[in-house]
Nucleic acid binder design. Sequence first.
DNA 1: ACCTGAACACCGTTCAAGT
DNA 2: ACCTGAACACCGTTCAAGT
Lengths: 232, 232
Amino acid sequence: METTSQSDAAAPPRAPLTRKRVLDTAVALADEGGVDALSMRRIAQALGVVPMALYKHVANKNELLDGMVDVLVGEIDPPVDGVGWRTAIRRRVLSARRMLLRHPWAPAVIETRAKARAHPTPVMLAYLDSMIGIFRAGGFPVDLTHHAMHVMGSRLLGFSQELFEEGSGRGPEPDALPPEEMAARFPHLTELATAVAHDRESVVGSGCDDQFEFEFALDLTLDGLDRLRAGG
Amino acid sequence: METTSQSDAAAPPRAPLTRKRVLDTAVALADEGGVDALSMRRIAQALGVVPMALYKHVANKNELLDGMVDVLVGEIDPPVDGVGWRTAIRRRVLSARRMLLRHPWAPAVIETRAKARAHPTPVMLAYLDSMIGIFRAGGFPVDLTHHAMHVMGSRLLGFSQELFEEGSGRGPEPDALPPEEMAARFPHLTELATAVAHDRESVVGSGCDDQFEFEFALDLTLDGLDRLRAGG
DNA sequence: ACCTGAACACCGTTCAAGT
DNA sequence: ACCTGAACACCGTTCAAGT
């Protein structure tokens, strides 16, 4: 195959390769053919680039998947002011659902990413923080907000299990944010995490009691169903 | 490498290869190294068998994954009699949760399998049918049972989205059960499906209104949270 | 008729050789 | 210093050649 020109007027550089272009192309390919059909080689081909060129913008395929999830979280509508917590949460969750319907491969990828990484990306943290902020502004005390986030879990982003597992002794991740920056950027998340940690200061693990949270959510659901049943 | 013997007293045949042995080994390998580390070649190696030998017992890797999910569903405790619907559902869901904790790779696989297949395996159908049966026996009318199954969705088996998508015009699957067998083996499921179809006989699609179901579950959850908040 | 080794068309990623 | 082709160690699956 011949190049279009060998003169110094080179072929149009087709826009420089950027992280955003790589991630957007990856998302588009996954939308078309599912995540199984997604490969580094195919993304490169779609961008008219040699496979190795991608590695300048993403460390490896796992990090590419993290980046893709960030793109999706960015598609969720930002919270609206002045409408009350319930309307704000409801709109946000329905926006997240619309995003998931556009990208049916997303829940499975998010599920595996949440299990594989010790902690979520900053984009994900910002989403969770903003969601917590809505509950807090709506008059929910910290502990009920904590339960509420667990209850909403599977509806917030298509997760079925807990949002993020504990680091489980793997030690701090290399790309963890310093605590001060965490507190500054994600104040609601920090407040909640601090309250939870203080709550169980005498317990070994500083994380949530996942079993309790699961049963709390389950009982809330069963209560609701029972009420409907009794009401006819 | 030499064979242990060339005499007619052959090496112990290590138990004949069966579908169950293939699936159990696959589940064990996934438990150890995650689903990414699972390959046909590795399963074969663990069984001391040539890779192609597996294809006598599973059609391909996707069908292997379906079989693995069936193994997991089989680990959920059967329903208990004489305890009331609420206790029965609660125990069952908590048993499903324990299964998921034993196999952290399961939700992502179930998620992808539910999206890839047009309909669930008979084992999965039996699980869902039995769950519906508990609600019905507990006095829930069919339509409320329908909503309840959607509400419980993500807790029933770690699904986040709808349990199974509509066939979406792909036509009947080759391995679909004939309607009479469906009705005989899964009576509750059939009753519910019939009621739903009748409900929307004037609508084109015969499936559920997923959007309605999602909002129903969301509002049930929000009602419960609001009640707790108001109660202090 | 049954089984299986080699082969095919892929993968993600490394690395040394080019510019 | 930067970029990249070939190569490495894998995949799932086909298929023809063996018994």
